[in-house]
Design a protein around this nucleic acid. Structure first.
Lengths: 145, 145
DNA sequence: CGGGATCCCACATGATACTG
DNA sequence: CAGTATCATGTGGGATCCCG
């Protein structure tokens, strides 16, 4: 059930790890890998993709209602970035008042699968992590004598 | 080979997605899921875990040498957080000069597997994303008339 | 309705200096 | 060697106002 102990030493994973470490080597900010990983780390990006994945197509304000606490500005900025990276399509209907619909691309759905797995991991291990945090405060640090 | 088009509509994934959306619902900053996802998004955390996963055990300065560009302060802060969350162990040898070794826990190795998959996704799709970015600059936005 | 433009501040992070 | 403490800064992101 709980796969906490993982065979991370499998050739397959080691291979991927070395490939990644090679790619991120130069911390030159131009590094595309780092650049993409930043999308995963962005709170608003992940939430936007979760909701678009769930709902299919959403208008700007529909999305805004679903993402609790996001400001108009950040939703705009986030969606622009996702559109620029090819994860989301933006469709404008030239009518008054304007209607703009957002939807995941195939690439975006592929991305969604990844962050679902992340979220699932977090969900499964959250209790373990919360426990570690509690112990941390009241712990003597490990000392080898 | 390239699984860009993914069956993201599988019951399994939808189930996980709904579970996640339920958990992140209240954007109360105390939310453990959001809280954990922040670790994934942290540049220095992911790099630290990559290198610890690759090397097994590393001393403070060994790790610092491997993570290009990290400041002493940020490495300390990062390692403390990872230790607090139970992802990394910190072992202090009381000798002069001091010797401190860091190593992934089982939980940390489980985490490592997740970010390897992320990095792999980024690596596989980076060309596609870079291409999307180039097109974005020179594109007429999609308008339905 | 769906933004764009500004202002502004908190906080994350870098640089530097000191220490057991 | 492995930090801690202090100071400096830049920028992510919220609040607000305006516009087609």
């Amino acid at each position: 059930m709980d796969r906490t102990i993982v065979d991370y030493q499998s050739n397959r994973l080691q291979e991927k790890l070395h490939k990644i470490l090679g790619s991120v080597g130069g911390t030159a900010s131009g590094c595309p890998i780092r650049n993409i990983l930043d999308r995963f780390s962005d709170k608003w990006s992940t939430l936007s993709i979760f909701h678009l994945g769930d709902a299919g197509t959403l208008r700007f304000n529909e999305l805004k209602k679903r993402i609790d606490g996001i400001s108009q500005r950040m939703l705009t900025v986030t969606l622009r970035t996702l559109e620029r990276d090819g994860l989301v399509t933006r469709r404008v209907y030239p009518q008054i008042p304007p209607r703009v619909e957002y939807e995941l691309t195939d690439l975006g759905r592929s991305f969604l699968v990844q962050i679902i797995e992340l979220g699932d991991w977090a969900s499964v291990h959250s209790a373990q992590i919360m426990q570690a945090r509690e112990q941390y405060a009241a712990r003597e640090h490990l000392v080898v004598e």
